[in-house]
Design a protein around this nucleic acid. Sequence first.
DNA 1: TTTTTACGTCAGCCATGTTGACGTATATCG
DNA 2: CGATATACGTCAACATGGCTGACGTAAAAA
Lengths: 169, 169
Amino acid sequence: MADVKTGPNPLFLREEELRQAMELLFFAYRDFTAVPDKILSKYGFGRAHRRVIYFVERYPGITVSELLGILQITKQSLSRVLSQLVREGFIVQHPGERDRRQRRLELTEKGRALEHELSENQRQLIARAYREAGAEAVEGFRQVMLGIMEEPDRQRFERREGQRSGGRR
Amino acid sequence: MADVKTGPNPLFLREEELRQAMELLFFAYRDFTAVPDKILSKYGFGRAHRRVIYFVERYPGITVSELLGILQITKQSLSRVLSQLVREGFIVQHPGERDRRQRRLELTEKGRALEHELSENQRQLIARAYREAGAEAVEGFRQVMLGIMEEPDRQRFERREGQRSGGRR
DNA sequence: TTTTTACGTCAGCCATGTTGACGTATATCG
DNA sequence: CGATATACGTCAACATGGCTGACGTAAAAA
């Protein structure tokens, strides 16, 4: 294959560096999602289901609109997978206490089991990468990834950067 | 929304750390691809076209099977977008010199222009993130991302790690 | 000369995103 | 209290981009 070019010119190096970052994102994401994708197909589910399950386990009691805000898809798209997950007993909904229009989402036991099965490989990938790279590299990784993200969701990761704001979105 | 939990338990912290990494990947990737997606729709293209254009500019003269190996999709899926790009004059094919069965791919001027338009925002995102995080963090980012990737494609990034072994890790 | 390889194409299926229109229950505002 | 806004749901139609399976052609390799 045509080789990855490398050169002494600092301007070029910078360009090369940026390109590399794009590819790192592409390859890491591709490999990161490959295994869960296979597991999901056993259940007749897809990536969309995985994301819903993930965020419901992450934020138990999350509302539909909050989930929409995270996934940034339309409610019709979400509805398709969510209602499937509810119908098949992976997720339960119950009305919000203060606002009974809301449907707060939670995983059932079955849902948690699936979530765990899906996360296992990813956990291992990350754990291995973290272990091999070391604590300092991990902090660098965090910083760069946060830098790539757009503002609104960065707050989700505030903490340990040194404050407590629990911001809305 | 249910808050991101945080606690003193080291075992829990580790779990929390792994979860965060998954989310960083999700959010960074989501935001990283958002702008190009919009540009593409102006041309009637999608993410698949973007990836092809990207890797053809990255590895000019790349063959179809090499591209398939990178993208990890079927030739039928690739064919759909590739032939469209060729038909509309973004990519040209010419037979390989040593092996005339191959079709080596290259961007046309038009293709390069589109590639540049698509990369611009991403370049800026990365450049900003790199600048704000600093050189050390960037190196950490690289290491962790490489650790998440599976073996075969890591070699693509060897260089500057300071040796030539194809080693494990 | 036969077999394998590189690439292409047709046809059909599935998952997941989109828009637009419309409906219901509850909360909130004037 | 009545009007309006909000949270959520649903139906229908469409596009993209994966997939499998079957079949074809030209060139390389055995």
